[in-house]
Amino acid sequence: MIGVYATCQVKQGFEAKFENLVKQFISESRTHAGCQSYDCGVVSGKERHYCFIERWTSQEDLDAHLNSLFFQQNAPKLEEILENGLDINIVNLI
């Protein structure tokens, strides 16, 4: 099982745009093979900070998700409204 947590800070004034786009990521990603869970939320006590929390059956499933047409087309839209991009962490769950 593979876990992913990715953190980011959204540029001031882009919170609604970010959340609308993230809702599409959540809906789409949950349909991808091997997706056990896919969520995103606001980090408590940190202004404009968000965290993605994901669980994938295998690294191959995560790789397929990252290479999907949806991800390739929409990830740049997320990146452009972030302060410093995504800090992505992949965890091999015990």
Rank of each mutant, 00 (worst) to 15 (best):
N74P: 02
F18R: 06
T57I: 06
F71G: 01
K11F: 07
N74C: 10
G41A: 11
S68K: 03
E19V: 12
F52G: 03
H32I: 09
T31K: 12
S27N: 06
G13D: 12
E60L: 03
V42A: 12
K46D: 12
K46W: 09
D61P: 00
S27P: 00
A64M: 04
A33Y: 04
K17H: 14
R30K: 13
K23Q: 15
K23T: 07
F18K: 05
G13P: 08
E15Y: 04
A33C: 04
S58M: 05
G13T: 07
S44R: 05
K77M: 14
Q73I: 05
F71N: 06
F18L: 14
V10G: 09
A33P: 04
F18Q: 04
Q59A: 10
P76F: 13
V10D: 09
L21Y: 06
R48L: 15
G41Q: 08
E19Y: 05
F70N: 02
D39Y: 14
Q72G: 04
A64K: 10
R48G: 10
S29V: 02
L66A: 10
L62E: 00
R48A: 11
C51N: 02
E19I: 13
P76S: 10
Q12R: 11
G13A: 11
S44I: 10
S44D: 14
V43G: 05
V43Y: 06
V10K: 04
G34K: 01
V10P: 10
K23G: 06
L66F: 07
T31P: 00
L21K: 07
E54M: 03
I53W: 11
C40W: 08
Q12K: 12
K77I: 15
G41H: 08
A16T: 14
N20D: 13
C40E: 13
S68D: 07
L62C: 03
G34L: 00
S29R: 01
E79H: 13
S29A: 11
S29E: 04
V10Y: 10
K17S: 15
V22F: 08
G13C: 08
Q9K: 13
G34R: 00
L66Y: 06
E28I: 03
R55S: 04
A75T: 10
N74W: 04
R55G: 02
S29Y: 00
E54C: 03
S68T: 06
F52R: 03
V43F: 04
L69W: 05
K17M: 13
K46E: 15
